[in-house]
């Protein structure tokens, strides 16, 4: 598994089970969590409709930068309600094909469940897709500061036929921070191996491009990752957006996998060293000889006794 699946498996399970069943949904309520500090609350509104509510601290910021548009594009036909700090989508079970059309209903329900399992990816990729589309069509837009995660910011800065995405990289753990620095340097190096890849720079100080935001107070961070996408490189905005939105998870996942790998090697090494230590203990020669002599002696005596009896 090289990258994390953008689908949330629990949402698929729960929503498809609820939509395929005929139980009364009125008193239903359960909570789920996702990456990036997003929480989902799935609650029943009446017998046949479900309310899919999203709670996140960065909701408004991402939404205004393009998240809401992306949701409207990806979830056509579902009524949406925006509240302060929450975002709700209504799913109406009675809109599904009749239960007599068993297979068709199931397919449609699974389709909806699959769609909602991608909610985080759809929502967070909004700002990226919007910027990429603008660059492609040549529309000018203002540089933006987006709070993409509870403690991390993203700056979208337009340039000539290009757009810069500057990620603020933050890790609460020191080890993670140091490892991530090494990882992100590798990102920069990737240009040599992958043809036509976007320009990536990683620096401890804020890059030149975001000079207009210098006045704003910047919290202490590991560094800034700047990905520059040129107009010619933009082909599939939605796909590129999804990858960019999942960047932090990709990074964390690989950091943790890397630590696991290092631990495995450490354990292996310790085992080897212990073996060496065990081998280094000298044999207790004297005792051995003594035992051998004594054993031989007793055997001889025993045989004598047996001999005497016979």
């Amino acid at each position: 598994m090289m990258s994390i699946d953008p689908h949330h498996p629990l949402i698929i399970d729960n929503i498809s089970a609820l939509l395929n069943s005929t139980i009364d949904l009125t008193n239903l309520l359960f909570k789920l969590t996702d990456y990036d500090g997003i929480q989902y609350v799935i609650s029943g509104q009446n017998t046949d409709s479900l309310c899919f509510t999203v709670l996140a601290p960065q909701l408004a910021s991402v939404g205004e930068a393009g998240g809401y548009e992306s949701i409207q594009l990806n979830y056509p036909g579902f009524p949406i309600a925006i509240d302060e700090g929450s975002y709700s989508i209504l799913i109406d079970r009675s809109q599904l094909p009749d239960p007599s059309l068993g297979e068709e209903r199931k397919l449609r329900a699974n389709d909806i469940a699959n769609k909602f399992s991608m909610f985080r990816t759809h929502f967070l990729s909004g700002p990226f897709i919007k910027a990429l589309k603008n660059v492609k069509s040549g529309t000018a837009f203002q540089p933006k500061e987006v709070l993409i995660r509870p403690n991390e910011k993203l700056w979208v800065i337009p340039g000539e036929n290009r757009v810069n995405f500057i990620f603020q990289v933050n890790f609460s753990d020191h080890t993670d921070g140091s490892l991530s620095r090494v990882f992100l340097q590798e990102f920069v190096e990737a240009k040599r191996q992958v043809p036509n890849s976007p320009v990536i720079t990683f620096s401890q100080n804020p890059p030149e491009a975001m000079s207009m935001f210098k006045g704003a107070t910047l919290p202490s961070t590991i560094g800034f990752l700047c990905i520059t996408v040129l107009k010619e490189q933009i082909r599939q905005e939605a796909e590129t957006g999804q990858w960019l939105a999942g960047l932090k998870q990709y990074l964390t996942y690989h950091l943790h996998a890397c630590k696991t790998y290092l631990h495995m090697r450490m354990r292996k090494k310790t085992e080897g060293l212990l073996k060496v230590l065990k081998n280094a203990v000298p044999d207790k020669l004297e005792e051995k000889t003594f035992r051998r002599v004594r054993a031989a002696k007793t055997r001889r005596e025993e045989s004598k006794i047996v001999y005497n009896f016979n």
Partner: peptide, 16 residues
């Protein structure tokens, strides 16, 4: 554990 956290539970371990 790594796989259960990331692909089954789909949670960010730092927050739980």
């Amino acid at each position: 554990w790594e796989r259960t956290i990331y692909s089954l539970m789909s949670v960010e371990p730092q927050e739980h």
